[in-house]
Amino acid sequence: MNHDAQKTITTWYVDPDADDRMSDGHAPIWRHLIDLIVEHDLSEKNVLDFGCNQGGLLRHLYAIRPFRKALGIDIAAQSIAKAETFKGNIPVQHAVGGTLEGWVEEFDLAISHEVIYLLEDIDAHATDIFKALKPGGAYYAVTGCHTDNPLWPKWRELVAKRTNTVVQDRSISDYGRAFAKAGFEVSGRKLEYDGFIPFVEDGWTPDFADALNYYTETKIMFRLVKRPNGGSA
């Protein structure tokens, strides 16, 4: 992975309180995506959350489907510090960073939620995750931030303004090609969140209909499998 992809930041958002609000808002979405994960019994599994922020997704996962152990990694140092504070007694290790150097065939399951659209080098990330997964392992990558999103022109401006990251322009097919190139068996689905969606005027969705369409139609979930016989990246 290139050097720029490995640099760390203090917080994801320019507003230091935005990470806390984001965690609260994502909780119902996290529970829904956990329901969609094919692997139900994680009791003997090692799990990775790439771009874990404050560790909320792993805490939700452990409460619903307890795992053997997990790693949460993120480039935002302050977020990782909070994740460590919040984790309690669950078997999770947190680390600051943007690559998985040293983690080889370690994880049975990997997850990322709204992370891949910020990665400068998606090919390097795909290769990184592929190497870190055990043969037969699966990576679930969830994002609604892609050029097939009708709100993307507006959103890319907001991401640039409100976060400490560099936004990337990729289509759903661009992601699929990158993961296939790394050796994954690629499939995907719409997230199709089926819960009630709060009416919030925060600038991201100009109209409430946009919010409803985003969570049911636009947001997608990749299932990326490292075949048991390996293959090569």
Rank of each mutant, 00 (worst) to 15 (best):
G72V: 01
E39C: 05
L36D: 06
P28N: 08
K69Q: 15
A81F: 05
P66T: 02
P91L: 05
N89G: 15
E84S: 06
N53F: 01
D49A: 01
G56E: 07
D35F: 06
P28W: 08
R65K: 09
I29R: 08
I90F: 10
V92P: 01
E44F: 12
A76L: 05
L48P: 09
D35C: 09
I75C: 03
I80T: 07
E84A: 09
S43E: 14
A76Q: 05
G51W: 00
P66E: 05
G88L: 13
Q78H: 14
A70F: 01
I80F: 04
T85H: 12
Y62C: 03
R31K: 14
G55D: 05
H26D: 09
E39T: 13
L42F: 06
S43D: 13
L33F: 11
I37R: 03
N53M: 07
V38H: 13
H40L: 11
C52Q: 02
D35A: 15
A77I: 08
A81H: 11
R65L: 01
N53V: 00
G72T: 03
N53Q: 11
Q93F: 00
W30Q: 12
K82S: 11
Y62T: 02
G88H: 13
L42M: 12
E39Q: 12
L71D: 01
K87W: 09
F86V: 03
S79G: 15
